[in-house]
C-alpha cells in the first residue's frame, strides 16, 4: 500500500499572541524573530496516522509538500518520524496561492507520484485555517473523501475510518484510493528518534518545480485577500487580590453573585 501525506510548513501557531505581527499593507504575517516554522499540527497527526498503518500493515509512506525552499524542513521532520520518501514541490510564491491553486498543484504532484491507495491531509492548515485543500484535492482527483478522522484502519481491502462529528463519530467504509483528512483526536504524534534523524538525513528529497509536474498556476485567483488586521480586544481584567487565596476565591464568588452572573 502506498500512502501520500500532504504536509505544510507554517509559522509556529502556538506563539504567544503578543508576538504575532502582521504587515497590514502587504497583507502578510511577519514571521516572529527566532521562532522556527513548524509542520502544521494536523499534518503531523496525518503523518502519525500513516505511520500507524505502516506499523500494522506493509506500506510505503511519502510526504509531500508545496512551499518555498525552507519547506524542506517539514519533509525532513516527517522522514525523521519514519516516512519512507519525501517530495518537495518548490515554489517560492506558494504563499500567494489560494486553496484552489494549492489543491491543483498538489493534485498534479500526487498524480506524478502515482500508484497511491491513500492520500492523507490535515483537517486544516494552522496558518490560514482554510480547511479546504484536502477536499478540493479529492474532488480534483475524483476520489472519495472522509473528513476529520480520529482513526484510520483497514478492513479487508477497504478503509475503515472513524470520522468525528458533533457528539461522537461515524464509522465510515470506503474503497481505495481515497483521501482522508486527519484531526487531533487521532492522538499525539510520535517524536522523531535519534536514529530516525540520522536515517532521514540520508534520504534524498525529490525536488520538483511546478513545471515538472505540469501544474499551471491559475492567474485569476478564486478568492482574494483584500484586508488583514489584528482584532482589538479591550477588556480590563479585575484581578482579585485579597490577603489569602481563600479570601480571593470567596470574593470572586461574591462579585459574580453581586453582578448576577451566577
Amino acid at each position: 500500500m502506498n500512502i501520500i501525506v500532504c504536509i505544510k510548513q507554517v509559522p509556529d501557531p502556538e506563539i504567544p499572541p503578543v508576538k504575532f505581527q502582521i504587515d497590514p499593507e502587504g497583507k502578510k504575517v511577519i514571521p516572529p524573530d527566532g521562532v522556527t516554522p513548524v509542520i502544521s499540527v494536523f499534518d503531523e497527526r496525518a503523518v502519525e496516522a500513516a505511520l500507524k498503518l505502516k506499523d500494522k500493515y506493509k506500506a510505503k509512506v511519502t510526504a509531500l509538500t508545496l512551499g518555498p525552499d525552507s519547506a524542506k524542513a517539514v519533509i525532513r521532520h516527517a522522514l525523521a518520524m519514519g516516512v519512507d520518501a519525501g517530495v518537495h514541490i518548490q515554489y517560492e510564491a506558494a504563499g500567494e496561492l489560494d486553496s484552489f491553486g494549492t489543491a491543483h498543484v498538489l493534485m498534479k504532484a500526487i498524480e506524478k507520484i502515482g500508484d497511491y491507495s491513500l492520500v492523507l491531509c490535515g483537517r486544516q492548515a494552522a496558518d490560514w485555517d482554510a480547511g479546504q485543500v484536502g477536499l478540493l484535492i479529492a474532488e480534483n482527483l475524483g476520489i472519495p473523501v472522509v473528513t476529520v478522522a480520529k482513526k484510520v484502519d483497514l478492513q479487508d481491502d477497504k478503509l475503515r475510518v472513524e470520522s468525528v462529528i458533533q457528539d461522537g463519530y461515524h464509522v465510515m467504509e470506503v474503497s481505495m484510493p481515497a483521501l482522508v483528512t486527519v484531526s487531533s483526536e487521532i492522538g499525539l504524534s510520535r517524536l522523531p528518534t535519534g536514529i530516525g534523524i540520522v536515517k532521514a538525513a540520508r534520504v534524498k528529497i525529490e525536488n520538483l518545480s511546478v513545471e515538472d509536474i505540469g501544474a499551471d498556476i491559475p492567474e485569476a485567483r478564486c478568492t482574494e485577500l483584500i484586508k488583514l488586521y489584528v482584532p482589538v480586544r479591550d477588556i480590563q481584567c479585575q484581578i482579585i487580590e485579597a490577603d489569602t487565596v481563600q479570601e480571593s476565591a470567596e470574593e470572586l464568588a461574591v462579585r459574580l453573585r453581586e453582578a448576577k452572573i451566577i
Binding site: 485555517d129 482574494e224 488583514l228 488586521y229 489584528v230
Partner: peptide, 15 residues
C-alpha cells in the same frame, strides 16, 4: 474570517 487561529482577521472577496 479569523485566520492564524484568531490572531488576525482576513477580509476576502470572490471577484
Amino acid at each position: 474570517r479569523p485566520v492564524f487561529g484568531g490572531n488576525a482577521n482576513a477580509e476576502m472577496i470572490t471577484r
